[in-house]
Amino acid sequence: MNQLSRILLLTLPFIVPAPVVAQEAEDRSSLTVGIGVASIPTYEGSDDSRMIFGPQLRGTVKEHAFFTRGPMLFFDAIPNRDDSGIDFQLGPVVGVRLDRTSIKQINDRAIEALGKRDTAIEVGGYVGIGKTGIITSAYDNLSARVAVTKDVAGAHESYIVTPAIEYFTPLSIRSFAGIGVSADYVGKKFGRYYSDIDAAGSLASGLPVYARGGADAGFRRVNANLTGGYSLSGDIRRGWVIAGMVGYSRMLGRYADSPVVAIAGSKDQFIGAIGVGYTF
């Protein structure tokens, strides 16, 4: 798998979201395999975009769910056996952060001159709770979770706390929609690694020296997305589905004030994706 495919694997939303899987409760197992294309910023904080493509999957095995959100892969160690629709979630998380790891994909001479960053492997855990059958029907789903991860590969060597809330609902037997909001709270070393510019970096890039990114831990950005899908097979629980997503992120505080964002990039980040998947 090439780097573009690996990035998409960790950034595209699942073709079939949580409420559709909830409708599979009787079967206890499901698998969705998909492929899609997305427009994403060339780096986090960039004002340019690029197109990427690659695979995606999600599923449930013996009442244990696995899924991706953003750059993270989650596994729920608590089996979902509660007929009341309440789903307690707890389990491991692993993610790969490829931000600025390839200079060729950045398309900005100043950022290129700062040099590439190492790949971060972020490992940790999450806790959450979800409820199926809460607002529009017996199959809609509202969930909240908090993930805590830390880089173990020696890149930024910091931690990330990611709270998130999501709501998904089937609109009919053939279509679904969803909305999600989340945020990233990062440690000092994270801001230092991705936001700060030392004297040598300033001389090479022409951007001013900046040392506030790693001054303290704080919220780096907030994210929101809308998801929708339509079954090509007549039933979103089985067969072919086409799905799309639009997302918006806002860089915050001293991370947004970094010349990497404020001068070379933009506080406003946009993502769009479309894909097709098959649910077994």
Results as ranks from 00 to 15, higher is better:
G265L: 07
D87A: 14
V20H: 02
L252W: 08
D196I: 01
V222G: 12
F66A: 06
Y255S: 09
P41V: 04
D151L: 05
N80S: 14
G218E: 02
T68N: 14
R69G: 11
R6C: 04
A155Y: 03
F14W: 09
T227C: 06
V246K: 04
P71T: 09
S249H: 02
G228L: 11
L8P: 01
R58F: 09
L171G: 04
G85T: 04
E112M: 09
P259A: 02
V93T: 08
G277T: 03
V260P: 05
I52W: 06
P92Y: 08
Y139R: 12
P17C: 04
S202I: 08
S143A: 13
G247C: 11
V181Y: 07
R254N: 15
K188Q: 14
I78L: 15
P71G: 14
R81M: 11
S84I: 03
T279E: 05
I263F: 00
M245A: 08
R238M: 01
S195C: 00
R6K: 11
A113K: 05
D76L: 08
V222R: 08
I129K: 00
S49C: 01
R100G: 00
F190K: 02
V61G: 03
G130K: 02
L142I: 15
G124N: 02
I274Y: 04
R50F: 07
G124W: 07
T68S: 15
S266E: 06
A147D: 07
S202E: 08
V37W: 04
P79Y: 05
E166S: 14
G244N: 03
R28H: 11
S249E: 09
I7P: 00
A138E: 15
S195V: 00
F67R: 05
G133F: 10
S137G: 12
D196G: 04
S182G: 13
A215D: 12
G128T: 12
R192F: 04
G133T: 10
G178A: 06
S102F: 09
V127S: 11
V127K: 06
A199Q: 05
R145E: 14
V186W: 07
G247K: 07
P19L: 00
M72F: 15
Y139S: 13
F53I: 12
L9E: 02
I52G: 02
S172H: 06
E44A: 11
N2P: 15
L203N: 00
L203Y: 00
E112S: 13
V37C: 00
I129W: 00
L73N: 01
G277I: 00
F190G: 11
A153H: 08
P79C: 05
I134T: 15
T169W: 07
G85Y: 10
A224E: 01
K188C: 03
S175I: 04
K150P: 00
G154Y: 08
R6P: 00
A183W: 01
A273N: 12
I111M: 09
V152I: 15
Y185V: 11
P71N: 10
G201L: 01
S182V: 08
G253P: 05
A211F: 05
D268N: 14
R81S: 15
A113V: 03
D48T: 13
D87I: 12
N2D: 15
M251A: 13
Y43G: 02
R28G: 07
K189Y: 09
Y126Q: 02
A215E: 13
K116G: 14
H64Y: 04
G59T: 06
G154L: 06
